[in-house]
């Protein structure tokens, strides 16, 4: 258990709803859900969710902390905003889903083998370490091989034709593997990003919770 997680568990005990209200972006909206389920039904990725939004809200009220925060569900959110548009109670569901995912990640509870958090992390590392630009080749390969060598080769073979197509249409340069471009003043960008992280963390620490 992460130190932060342990702190939060101690602090809120059975009051997961209150924990969410205090720590999760837009979390104070969770109590307004009236369990109509229109968000769950409207989500284009709904069938892949283990727990759809309305159920997550009920689980939060029922104090199912672990189940919610370890759930892969909110990581499926693609920010299409269908749920927000439809919610009869004005809940910013998309934001709450991201807020929950973010909070779970901070607590170290986000699912380890779910593609979205992994991708997000690879994307971020790639950008942050790659001089302000996403190196698509490296990002692609790291995703192919995220589940090990054998899986990676299989995926690469499967994607062969697309790769070839991109190569011939000059959409992909194999030499990017040796470094690739970075933006101007990549150090400046890094400094900016570091500052941003600092501000975010300060903000998180400020939560009453």
């Amino acid at each position: 258990m992460s130190q932060l997680n342990a702190t939060k568990v101690e602090k809120y005990r059975n009051h997961f709803l209150r924990e969410v209200e205090a720590n999760v972006e837009e979390g104070h909206w969770v109590k307004m859900c009236m369990q109509c389920g229109v968000c769950s039904g409207s989500c284009p990725l709904g069938p892949y969710w283990e727990h759809p939004p309305q159920e997550i809200f009920m689980m939060i009220r029922a104090g199912k902390r672990e189940e919610v925060l370890k759930s892969s569900s909110m990581w499926f959110c693609t920010s299409c905003y269908n749920c927000i548009a439809r919610c009869p109670r004005e809940l910013p569901i998309t934001h709450i889903m991201h807020g929950l995912a973010h909070y779970a990640k901070r607590l170290g509870l986000a699912p380890q083998n779910q593609a979205t958090p992994k991708f997000a992390q690879y994307f971020w590392d790639n950008l942050y370490n790659g001089g302000g630009r996403v190196n698509e080749l490296k990002l692609g390969l790291s995703l192919y091989f995220m589940n090990g060598l054998v899986e990676g080769i299989k995926t690469a073979l499967k994607m062969r034709k697309i790769g070839q197509g991109m190569y011939f249409s000059k959409r992909m340069n194999p030499f990017e593997i040796f470094g690739g471009h970075s933006c101007k003043d990549s150090q400046g960008l890094k400094a900016a990003l570091n500052k941003a992280r600092e501000i975010e963390e300060a903000k998180a620490a400020q939560f009453k919770g």
Binding site: K31, M32, M34
Partner: peptide, 8 residues
């Protein structure tokens, strides 16, 4: 609900 009453 806004006052934090939970409904089940």
């Amino acid at each position: 609900q806004n006052k934090g009453i939970t409904f089940t």
